[in-house]
Amino acid sequence: MAMKLCSVILLGLALGAGARPAVADSIAEKVEVCAGCHGADGKPVDKTIPVIWGQLTGYIYIQLRDFKRGDRKSEIMQPIASGFERDDMLAVAEYFSQKKWPDLGQPRAPKDVSKKATDAEHSVGCTGCHLEQFQGTSTTPRLAGQSREYLAKTMADLRTRARGNNPGMSDLMIATPENDLTALAEFLAGL
């Protein structure tokens, strides 16, 4: 329900934004639309929507670019991103990267879950890109403290290639036993 409401608000805002000349838009105007789903305080209105406050500039930029290209599918994000040029995307990405990462209040995973998650991580080598504390770097996203439901959905979508804009990640998720993904989501969300 929340998702549906969010879609309606966003589509309206996006259409409105598209009607104005892009150069006239300040960053504040450009990001106005984002709060409808990603939260006015950085806490998304729905748990399957990612935290973007404090996320890395490079990663946000690449996602906006991919939404515009259609490499990443989203009926909500595609119309928004398609109004952006490269500099807009970088500016929006920079804007959100400077925000403080919100505390979603997700608990630490219990020991057995953490063990299962870290065993899975060691096998596939997540920290090779997401780094030791899962803080990410540049175009590789921060995972620590991300919404558990979003993480679970993303890993599942990568696994089926429903999320198609990172085939390398899809390969790695396919190589990870399906029953380890829940533990990974819980572990990462609780960091």
Binding site: S123, C129, G168
Partner: peptide, 23 residues
């Protein structure tokens, strides 16, 4: 060593599968 097939992803990670340590 696992193989998967996917088209060139425009500068993204392109492994064509995965090599995973045996726990």
């Amino acid at each position: 060593y696992r193989v998967e097939s996917s088209p060139y992803p425009n500068g993204k990670l392109w492994l064509g599968g995965a090599f995973t340590a045996i726990p």
